[in-house]
Design a binder for these strands. Structure first.
Length: 544
RNA sequence: GCGCCCGUAGCUCAACUGGAUAGAGCAACGCCCUUCUAAGGCGUAGGUUACAGGUUCGACUCCUGUCGGGCGUACCA
């Protein structure tokens, strides 16, 4: 049982002395100031109103009725307006340190999503060009949220959804055809709104190499489109792999048509009276759900809008038995979400099982000015280019360090000169330092089996230990909120606490028993750093 | 016009569910390498949390309004 759960339990027991109509929720928080103890509860303040008494008096009554294990809690104090502050006993802290070492690579895992099957759908870019830094935030966020779910016990599947049948891909095929003809010196007309990127020429070139003039009189853009899709997908897969992202499945929108799911979706909605025909188009009565206008599902041309397959796709996900389906997408797609929810709800699925992680746009800054990206116009910086410059670790870190809900400013110049001022190195450096020390300890010492951890008495040692203990809760919060940046904030705190310890306390050259105790402490820190960086998909180097 | 998101130190951003004295990094200034990695440390400076009200014992956090920015509001994806 976690310490916080223990505190909730003992406070709950003490509260039985009051005649409360309903059981209050007992909150335990981490005080910002060390003088305020290791854990704190505001319960007395929240009870002031129902009990019609002042908070400090209530706090006193709660503390008087509190029965606690002195092996866990060394002191309980009332402070400020009525906070009850707890201090952890050293015995508890040392037991926990042993626990971290024993649990090792598993330390930080929890069971809040135990037994749940979760599908995380992300990236989902149509194969019209290489992945850009614009896609990077989606890719890294989705993968890391998936990792967080895994750390909280879920069985996770990562899925990439794409559509190679739409207009985008036709234009892509036409663009390749034009470049192909151009290469062979034939007449060609570059399509309006075509893809202008250099990679189109590369694809055309490889077609010309393989097929010569065979395709000059091709009936349509199909062979060009297929070649483009193949090459671009190979490129995207390579980029994902470089970023340590491994998809479990690729889902093509087309299969929804082939299975008749699109038709089925419409018919089911029609049977419920939520779909009607007008002006040659098929409409979804979204006004029923409070929207201002109804929404077109099938255009008068007979082509569905993207909302229809979106609804059918989510129904398909739920048919596959997932307990939770999480979509990751940028703020520009937020408008589709209510339609999808209303759609699946109307099809009698539980909308609670669909959740979305929305992130704000990445603003690219180039030469000190904002820079609009467009795949079509070939204004972009690819993820591969970025990784060539700064590597995969920095790339992942960069996209994860900020809350998904805030605009992320990406300054290309700054990223390139990232070098030593990049914050990811601070974390890796702490790990490398510990590794180096551990190698030396290994060479120079031979320890007995028993360790006396109670030799760890320096404030920096205790502070470091306490910081490590927050790790499991941090992971739990990050998973619950789908916000990986909390892990980074924690790791920064941990690395900083270690660095303070490193400067205050030596390991090598002290009394042998102390060397041993501090070695155990350092091993634990390295372990927690590895676990945390592992969740972020960032390496923990042994030397730098 | 309407809807969603955002506005915190010079810059980029934190602040868990409403908690106690709003924190980091970068930039600036001053120190610290014969000692386990200086990709580091210590110190100084920097704030009316956009603005105005409200709710609360307590507001960066919740509510209302104003201003500023982003996105959406298609028979585009």
């Amino acid at each position: 049982m976690s310490m916080k759960q223990y505190l909730v339990d003992i406070i709950g027991k003490s509260l039985q002395q009051f005649d409360l109509e309903e059981e209050p929720e007992i909150q335990i928080e981490d005080p910002r100031q060390p003088e305020h103890g290791d854990a704190s509860s505001n319960i007395a303040m929240t009870l002031a109103r129902p009990l019609k008494n002042n908070p400090r008096a209530i706090a006193q009554q709660i503390v008087d009725g509190l029965e606690y294990d002195e092996k866990k809690v060394s002191a309980v104090e009332i402070a400020g307006p009525g906070f009850i502050n707890f201090r952890y006993s050293e015995e508890y802290l040392f037991d926990e340190l042993s626990e971290i070492l024993k649990t090792g690579a598993e330390f930080g895992k929890s069971d809040s999503h135990q037994g749940k099957r979760i599908l995380v759908e992300f990236v989902s870019a149509n194969p019209t060009g290489p992945l850009t830094v614009g896609h990077g935030r989606n890719a890294v966020l989705g993968d890391t949220v998936a990792r967080l779910f895994e750390w909280t016990g879920a069985d996770v599947e990562r899925e990439y959804y794409f559509n190679d049948a739409g207009r985008q891909m036709r234009v892509l095929g036409e663009s390749v055809r034009a470049r192909y003809l151009e290469l062979l010196g034939k007449d060609s007309e570059f399509p309006e709104g075509g893809y202008e990127g250099e990679y189109i020429r590369d694809i055309a070139q490889s077609l010309a190499d393989d097929k010569g003039e065979e395709l000059v009189d091709a009936e349509d853009e199909k062979p060009f489109k297929e070649k483009a899709e193949e090459e671009i997908f190979a490129d995207i897969s390579g980029t994902l792999e470089r970023m340590k992202i491994k998809m479990d499945s690729f889902f093509n929108e087309r299969s929804l048509y082939e299975d008749g799911k699109i038709e089925e979706t419409i018919e089911k909605l029609r049977a419920k009276g939520l779909v009607y025909d007008e002006d040659g188009a098929v409409w979804f009565k979204t006004t029923e759900f409070g929207k201002e206008k109804d929404t077109v599902l099938v255009k008068s041309s007979g082509e569905p809008t993207y909302r229809l397959p979106d609804i059918a796709y989510h129904a398909n996900k739920l048919d596959r038995g997932f307990d939770l389906c999480v979509d990751v997408f940028g703020a520009d797609h937020i408008a589709t979400y209510p339609d999808v929810l209303n759609g699946i709800k109307s099809l009698d699925y539980d909308p609670e099982k669909v959740d979305v992680v929305v992130y704000q746009f990445v603003t690219l800054v180039k030469d000190g000015k904002p820079f609009k990206m467009s795949t079509r116009k070939a204004n972009f910086v690819t993820l591969d280019e970025l990784m060539d410059e700064v590597g995969a670790d920095v790339t992942r870190f960069f996209f994860l360090m900020r809350s998904p809900n805030t605009h992320l400013e990406f300054d290309i110049g700054q990223a390139k000169e990232a070098g030593e001022k990049n914050p990811v190195f601070y974390l890796q450096y702490a790990h490398a330092r510990i590794s180096s020390i551990l190698r030396k300890v290994e060479e120079e010492y031979d320890f007995p089996e028993d360790v006396d951890l109670s030799l760890l008495t320096h404030p920096s040692e205790i502070a470091l230990l306490k910081t490590m203990l927050k790790f499991p809760e941090t992971i739990g919060n990050a998973a619950r909120l789908r916000e990986p940046h909390h892990v980074i904030t924690f790791l920064n705190e941990l690395a900083s606490a270690f660095t303070t310890f490193y400067h205050d306390c030596r390991i090598l050259g002290e009394e042998k028993e102390l060397v041993q105790a501090r070695t155990e402490l350092a091993k634990a820190v390295a372990q927690v750093l590895r676990n945390g960086l592992g969740i972020l998909g960032i390496t923990a180097p042994e030397q730098m």
